[in-house]
Design a binder for these strands. Structure first.
Lengths: 326, 326
DNA sequence: CTGAAAGCGCTTACAG
DNA sequence: CTGAAAGCGCTTACAG
């Protein structure tokens, strides 16, 4: 049988109260008593049951994370940032990937009602923002990662999508490009609108193709633009997968990158270093966003009020061969 | 204040025992009583506190997953398979990524001792196998995903690494290739030894370069072999990143794939479809491995004894242009 | 078919 | 500085 606080108390010849006190390093415990209790704790290998502590204290020291499919290319980075931070704080991390539709959401809301965790980190809700907002209103601490530009009523961590788009445009403009083809993700994403607005502010264009955040989409976007005889000397892709597809389509139709056409992506996924040629791209600090969001939530759980304004982390232009410096 | 079982009991005019019974759909409850209780439950939006249930029942209905860095390319697939399965069973998924060394391990063992979860899924322990084995011996249900060929004393889910290597060799041999260059990952991984053994059994070679599971490693492997004037007409890379690096090095040194040199990878990562040319590779069913392992663990928690032999899922050769059919 | 009571393993006023 | 007792919100023999 595993040891309980009662076992420790008995063997140390004190009350459970006292054991609890040394466990939680409260003051007001005689040094020698404390030492004796600690000895017994070590001897018995006693560790308080997290369930019992949680019940008694009314908190679980666990954080939940709600995510879109875990197979998204930058998911691992965010998750790692979150996991490291949460773990370092001694909290548990409960993962909910809303991957099975309504059933997933039901399971998740159930766990919220069951008070299975103290706070929630959310990425890209996609149709769940209403549910989340409801939970937040009822008192669940929530921090959003990447708010898709909706700037809802909760604390959030975002990145400079607009400035990122602008930096891509400036870089292209500086290298003498003036006729861009822009390949976006779905327009209902706030980040897409922001990246586009930032880019257009510097380098206006009417050659914008809306698509998905996939390689295929990038390929088709370029193929279609070429087929229509549109004239462009550079491509701004809204993520690196799109950019990779664009690179491929350009190569297959005999264009040289960057001589004929320069290409800039977004995200700085691992593949960006390995495309042909390596991709110039706007880096999103995904891991840092995960860390920041987790730290923010943890702070909130500590009782502090969280900033009403999104915490915005800067993007960074990473220059490689697909769009070199002028 | 959120409703408790006592509130429900009071409003329904029954005892907490009865409420508990209808909650857990035990028989022996009068139909009309049960209906009344259910009404109150709905009216109050009552959901049992998972913490309290856990304490009373001595189990948390939570599973933990211990992983290497979450940024590994196929991690998302495995995790998604696990998450979907665990979630569908109504369990929670607690994530531990041992990414901060000894401190991570300490945090993790703490949670084990605190009984924070009922069972454990493990990928690639890397120096933690001893700790895990100890926990398993003390009664923690554990299922290993990809046992690196060590076949330890616990239930595990693996894939046919050996046969996968053999299938790559057969495919190359069938297309008339006889002089392979093999680029492996670190030799202390069981999967590396298995893939190599399977390959060599069909297509013996002394041209084996040990490296890391990275693009750089693949590039350097090919460059070095070429620099040494070694003669080869195909490459078997132990994962797709290595293969991608090999493709690049071959292209940059003027070799044509597959005409001069055919290339086969391993894993079938998303990038495999987007390399130039698209990569023939041995597919590992990562998501299915995650699902299977989770299902296995869940079964074990249900009280059934788990198979002593690893559950082995088949690899599958996916043929693309880098090594086409003969 | 139903309920009073004990128990799960802790924490926390309260009293001394 | 320390402890007895109540309480966190459930489940589960046990008795009827």
């Amino acid at each position: 049988m595993r040891a309980t606080i009662a076992d420790v108390a008995r063997q140390a010849g004190v009350s459970k109260t006292t054991v609890s006190r040394v466990l939680n390093t409260r003051a007001d415990v005689d040094a020698s008593t404390a030492a004796r209790v600690r000895e017994v704790i070590d001897a018995l290998g006693y560790v308080p049951s997290s369930g019992a502590v949680g019940l008694a204290r009314g908190s679980s020291r666990t954080i939940a994370m709600l995510t879109p499919p875990l197979t998204w290319p930058w998911m691992g980075e965010v998750l790692q940032g979150v996991a490291d931070t949460v773990e370092a704080a001694g909290y548990g991390l409960l993962l909910f990937s809303c991957n099975r539709g309504a059933d997933s959401v039901r399971h998740f809301t159930g766990q919220v009602s069951a008070r299975a965790f103290d706070g929630l980190l959310v990425i890209e809700p996609e149709n769940t923002l209403g549910t989340i907002a409801e939970m937040y209103r009822k008192g669940l601490p929530v921090v959003l990662i990447d708010d898709r530009g909706r700037h809802p009523a909760f604390p959030s961590v975002a990145t400079t999508n607009r400035e990122g788009g602008a930096s891509a445009a400036r870089h292209l403009l500086d290298s003498g490009r003036t006729k861009p083809l822009v390949l976006t993700g779905r327009r209902d994403f706030g980040c897409v609108r922001d990246r586009l607005a930032g880019f257009s502010g510097v380098l206006p264009t009417d050659l914008v193709v809306e698509g998905e955040f996939t390689e295929e989409s990038g390929r088709h976007g370029v193929e279609r633009a070429l087929a229509q005889g549109r004239d462009f000397d550079c491509v701004f892709a809204h993520n690196d997968l799109i950019a990779a597809g664009a690179l491929r389509a350009l190569r297959e139709t005999g264009r040289t990158v960057p001589d004929d056409i320069a290409v800039v992506g977004f995200d700085d996924l691992p593949i960006a270093r390995h495309t042909e040629p390596p991709l110039t791209t706007v880096r999103q600090p995904m891991r840092q966003m995960g860390e920041t969001a987790a730290r923010l939530l943890l702070t909130g759980l500590g009782g502090e009020t969280l900033p009403a304004v999104p915490v915005v982390l800067p993007t960074e232009l990473v220059v490689r061969r697909s769009a070199p410096c002028p």
